[in-house]
Amino acid sequence: MALIPYDKNAVWGLQKLHKSSSTYHFANHTIKIKQNWKQLGVAAVVWDAAVVLCSYLETGAIDLRERSVIELGAGTGLLGIVATLLGREIKVQRD
Protein backbone atom coordinates (compact mmCIF):
# COMPACT_ATOMS: atom_id res chain seq x y z
CA MET A 1 0.00 0.00 0.00
CA ALA A 2 1.32 3.44 -0.90
CA LEU A 3 1.86 6.03 1.79
CA ILE A 4 -0.05 8.53 -0.31
CA PRO A 5 -3.26 7.41 -2.03
CA TYR A 6 -3.05 7.16 -5.80
CA ASP A 7 -5.46 9.85 -6.87
CA LYS A 8 -4.05 12.25 -9.44
CA ASN A 9 -6.64 14.88 -8.57
CA ALA A 10 -6.23 14.68 -4.78
CA VAL A 11 -3.29 16.99 -4.14
CA TRP A 12 -1.89 19.49 -6.62
CA GLY A 13 1.74 19.02 -5.47
CA LEU A 14 1.64 15.29 -6.15
CA GLN A 15 0.75 15.57 -9.83
CA LYS A 16 4.41 15.35 -10.85
CA LEU A 17 4.55 11.89 -9.27
CA HIS A 18 1.93 10.66 -11.74
CA LYS A 19 3.97 11.52 -14.84
CA SER A 20 5.53 8.57 -16.66
CA SER A 21 8.98 10.19 -16.53
CA SER A 22 10.94 13.06 -15.03
CA THR A 23 13.96 14.87 -16.47
CA TYR A 24 16.75 16.39 -14.38
CA HIS A 25 20.02 18.21 -15.09
CA PHE A 26 22.90 17.33 -12.75
CA ALA A 27 26.68 16.95 -13.12
CA ASN A 28 26.61 18.30 -16.68
CA HIS A 29 24.24 15.52 -17.75
CA THR A 30 20.56 15.28 -18.59
CA ILE A 31 19.01 12.39 -16.69
CA LYS A 32 15.58 11.04 -17.62
CA ILE A 33 13.98 8.73 -15.07
CA LYS A 34 10.96 6.56 -15.90
CA GLN A 35 8.30 6.40 -13.18
CA ASN A 36 5.44 3.97 -12.63
CA TRP A 37 3.45 4.83 -9.52
CA LYS A 38 0.45 2.66 -10.41
CA GLN A 39 2.50 -0.51 -10.74
CA LEU A 40 5.31 -0.05 -8.20
CA GLY A 41 4.08 2.55 -5.71
CA VAL A 42 6.31 4.90 -3.71
CA ALA A 43 9.57 3.29 -4.85
CA ALA A 44 8.89 4.17 -8.47
CA VAL A 45 8.93 7.97 -8.30
CA VAL A 46 11.60 10.62 -7.84
CA TRP A 47 11.02 12.28 -4.48
CA ASP A 48 11.82 15.93 -3.74
CA ALA A 49 14.29 14.89 -1.02
CA ALA A 50 16.41 13.07 -3.62
CA VAL A 51 16.43 16.13 -5.88
CA VAL A 52 17.42 18.40 -2.97
CA LEU A 53 20.27 16.08 -1.94
CA CYS A 54 21.46 15.87 -5.57
CA SER A 55 21.55 19.68 -5.67
CA TYR A 56 23.51 19.75 -2.42
CA LEU A 57 26.04 17.19 -3.67
CA GLU A 58 26.44 19.18 -6.86
CA THR A 59 27.62 22.20 -4.84
CA GLY A 60 30.80 20.26 -4.07
CA ALA A 61 30.35 20.44 -0.29
CA ILE A 62 31.21 16.73 -0.21
CA ASP A 63 33.99 15.48 -2.48
CA LEU A 64 32.78 12.23 -4.05
CA ARG A 65 35.80 11.60 -6.28
CA GLU A 66 37.28 8.15 -5.69
CA ARG A 67 34.66 7.38 -3.02
CA SER A 68 32.19 4.54 -2.71
CA VAL A 69 28.56 5.53 -2.29
CA ILE A 70 25.67 3.31 -1.25
CA GLU A 71 22.16 4.52 -1.88
CA LEU A 72 19.47 2.85 0.20
CA GLY A 73 15.76 3.48 -0.19
CA ALA A 74 15.89 6.54 -2.41
CA GLY A 75 13.14 5.70 -4.89
CA THR A 76 14.23 5.40 -8.52
CA GLY A 77 17.96 5.83 -7.93
CA LEU A 78 18.45 9.41 -9.13
CA LEU A 79 20.66 10.15 -6.13
CA GLY A 80 22.95 7.18 -6.83
CA ILE A 81 23.23 8.14 -10.49
CA VAL A 82 24.18 11.73 -9.64
CA ALA A 83 26.65 10.63 -6.95
CA THR A 84 28.33 8.33 -9.48
CA LEU A 85 28.53 11.07 -12.10
CA LEU A 86 29.96 13.53 -9.59
CA GLY A 87 32.49 10.98 -8.38
CA ARG A 88 33.77 10.48 -11.92
CA GLU A 89 33.87 14.17 -12.79
CA ILE A 90 37.39 15.40 -13.48
CA LYS A 91 38.00 18.90 -12.21
CA VAL A 92 40.33 20.91 -14.44
CA GLN A 93 42.27 23.74 -12.85
CA ARG A 94 43.03 26.70 -15.04
CA ASP A 95 45.97 29.01 -14.47
Rank of each mutant, 00 (worst) to 15 (best):
Y56R: 07
W47R: 04
T76S: 15
D63L: 06
R88T: 00
I90F: 07
Y56F: 13
T76G: 08
L72S: 09
T59K: 14
I62H: 11
A83F: 02
Y56L: 12
G80I: 03
S55W: 08
D63A: 13
V69N: 08
I90A: 14
A83S: 14
G73H: 08
L57W: 05
W47G: 02
L72K: 03
L86F: 06
S68F: 02
S68H: 12
L85M: 13
G77Y: 05
L53P: 00
D48Y: 03
E89C: 03
T59G: 05
A61G: 04
G75D: 11
I62D: 12
T84D: 15
L78D: 05
L86A: 09
R67K: 15
A50P: 01
V69P: 03
G77E: 09
V69D: 05
I62R: 10
L57N: 09
A74G: 10
E58V: 00
E89L: 10
S68Q: 14
L78E: 07
L64K: 12
D48E: 15
L57D: 11
L57C: 09
A83H: 03
V46N: 06
G75S: 12
R88N: 11
T76V: 08
V92S: 07
R88D: 04
Y56C: 02
G75F: 10
G60H: 07
G73W: 05
R67N: 11
W47M: 04
L53N: 02
V92N: 10
R65A: 14
L85Q: 12
E58D: 09
G80E: 13
I90D: 13
I90T: 12
A74M: 12
G77D: 11
Y56P: 00
L53D: 02
I90H: 14
I81T: 11
V51D: 13
L86N: 09
